[in-house]
């Protein structure tokens, strides 16, 4: 195994593109180190990028924020602007691991690790966030929702890596929230998870919404039917029930050591409903 700290993003792309063996990028390292230790992955090349310009900074852009790929959960949580604009995204990121893990873990790492239960991802998908990708052919942008390809897999090409996440501006009276279910209060992997981002009008009617679910399908997924169930409503009891039902109906989970199909399906609906109510309150609406 080689450990390399390239001087530029271009150099990194070339290194990663030309390496014939297994490659890994280390920012937080909280997944890569575990996989290396367990023998799941034996990389031939590990590339450390976090010293490169911009990778550890959060900058305002077009009313939103661009967040460098090596920004840790702890750093993100200390940024008042991001916390105020996208509290649901931040709470998702901050649920990853412990305080110690927060000191290193990044939301890009969480995304690129490809876990269906990734806590950072539903919030990003609900926020319609995009990522900027560097690769051997230069830079491109891509919606977060299109990155996961299946458990442990992404749509990133050979030599490609994410350099930043862009969280967009949002209209007035908008709010988001993320909830997951775990048996313990902390130090756990989501058994089911839901993120909701919504906007209400002056009367409190939901005018736009995005609902994303985690840990209930091979990838984190956007559920338009669940969003449709609350758009045009004030999130009254009937809309809440419809949301929960639509979320549960979209689930395609597995039975495993962490939860059953039946449990995940039911709880995903409960969490979608509860997250929507928190998002609504943050948007200033009332049900």
């Amino acid at each position: 195994m080689r450990f390399v700290r390239p001087e530029t993003l271009e150099e990194a792309a070339t290194l990663l593109g030309q390496e014939s063996g297994v490659t890994r990028i280390i920012s937080g390292g909280t997944d890569v180190m575990v996989q290396m230790r367990s023998g799941l992955v034996a990389p031939d090349l590990v590339v450390d990028l976090k010293h490169l310009t911009g990778l550890r900074s959060i900058t305002p852009e077009a009313g939103g924020f661009r967040i460098g790929a090596a920004v840790s959960g702890a750093q993100l949580g200390e940024h008042e602007g991001v916390c105020a604009l996208w509290p649901g995204v931040v709470e998702g990121v901050q649920l990853i691991g412990s305080t110690q893990v927060q000191g290193r873990a990044t939301m890009v790492g969480n995304l690129c690790n490809g876990s269906p239960a990734a806590d950072a991802v539903p919030g990003l998908v609900a926020a319609d966030a995009t990522v900027r990708i560097m690769g051997p052919n230069g830079s491109r942008d891509c919606p977060v929702a299109e990155i996961p390809a299946g458990p442990g897999r992404t749509t990133l090409g050979k030599g490609e890596f994410v350099t930043s996440v862009f969280l967009p501006a949002r209209p007035e009276r908008s709010g988001d929230a993320y909830l997951r279910f775990t048996p313990r209060t902390e130090m756990d992997i989501a058994v089911a998870a839901a993120a909701v981002s919504l906007t209400v009008d002056a009367k409190g009617v939901v005018t736009a919404a995005r609902v994303a679910l985690g840990a209930v399908a091979p990838t984190v997924m956007l559920v338009p039917e669940a969003a449709a169930a609350i758009i045009g409503t004030t999130l009254d009891d009937a809309a809440q029930a419809a949301l929960a039902a639509a979320a549960s109906a979209a689930c395609n989970p597995i039975d495993d050591k962490r939860g059953t199909i039946e449990f995940r399906t039911r709880v995903a609906g409960v969490l979608a409903r509860r997250a929507a109510l928190i998002a609504l309150a943050r948007a200033g609406g009332q049900n």
Partner: peptide
């Protein structure tokens, strides 16, 4: 920053 040293490379 508080970290787990088992999740950091010596390098």
């Amino acid at each position: 920053r508080l970290v787990c040293s088992c999740l950091v490379l010596g390098a």
